[in-house]
């Protein structure tokens, strides 16, 4: 009797299979990378994609994605992606940014890229702190959350309130697609992938700016075990940063 072996799982061609990432154990950056790479592969656009890495934990993303990449200055990825897309309108251009990069130093760039309806896709990793520089307060840090620069917990009287990026950008006319997903369990990972796919689909259809915010874990800087960190997303981040599609182009289900 002959047995036909059918692969049930393969590495994506969008990521280098020969590299071990520098991400901490339990960090969900790797999951987000994989989702983006899988979507680009499934859409058949790996060969005509240009990615933009930012400054933060994902600064070395160009070492993992098997697509042409540019490394941008801190916060400037949407401007760099704009430059690329305006020169190469038929390529797929995405920026991959963290919350310090996008929502603090790069707030002007993201808001204006969105307002222009720039036909790019932004993957926005929200882990409620600065990971790379070891756990300082980010614009997304929750009230009361301890970080190395809010050692007693974020006090709004002193440090203000967290920014909901997806909602903020949803006030603009420019964006075509805005969604917030989470990476804390399998069901949500699959949902996040659907969001990412729709975001790139919107770009391919020339509909304009798309952004997917992903709630992501940072066990090292949160001082939690990997599983506890996923619980933290579910219990603390999701209630403050509601999940779902905030903006969809007409005709998209």
């Amino acid at each position: 009797m002959s047995v036909t072996l059918r692969p049930v799982f393969e590495p994506t061609r969008g990521l280098r299979s020969d590299r071990v990432t520098h991400y901490c154990p339990g960090c969900t950056h790797g999951v987000a990378h994989r989702l983006v790479a899988e979507v680009l592969e499934e859409l058949g656009v790996l060969e005509r994609t240009v990615g933009v890495a930012s400054v933060g934990c994902s600064v070395l993303a160009y070492n993992y994605f098997l697509v042409d990449m540019q490394e941008a200055a801190h916060g400037r990825a949407p401007a760099v992606a704009t430059g690329i897309k305006r020169v190469l309108p038929d390529r797929v251009v995405f920026a991959y940014q963290g919350d310090g990069d996008l929502a603090a130093i790069g707030m002007a760039e993201i808001v204006h890229a969105a307002a222009r309806g720039e036909n790019i896709t932004v993957i926005f990793i929200n882990n409620a702190n600065y990971g790379m520089t070891s756990g300082q307060m980010a614009p997304t840090t929750l009230v009361g959350q301890r970080t190395t620069t809010t050692p007693l917990g974020r006090d709004p009287a002193q440090a203000g309130y967290p920014i909901r990026v997806a909602e903020l950008l949803d006030t603009l006319d420019g964006p075509a697609y805005i969604a917030r997903g989470s990476l804390h369990d399998t069901a949500h990972v699959l949902q996040a992938k659907r969001y990412i796919r729709k975001a790139f689909q919107a770009q391919l259809e020339g509909r304009g700016f798309s952004l997917v915010e992903l709630l992501s874990s940072c066990p090292t800087n949160w001082g939690l075990e990997p599983v506890e960190a996923l619980d933290f997303i579910r219990e603390r981040l999701v209630p403050h940063y509601p999940l779902g599609e905030l903006r969809k182009p007409e005709g998209v289900r």
Partner: peptide, 15 residues
């Protein structure tokens, strides 16, 4: 700041 970074992206794209 954005202008020069758009230039960066466009130059990197070969233009």
């Amino acid at each position: 700041v954005s202008a020069i970074n758009m230039v960066y992206g466009a130059a990197g794209a070969g233009a």
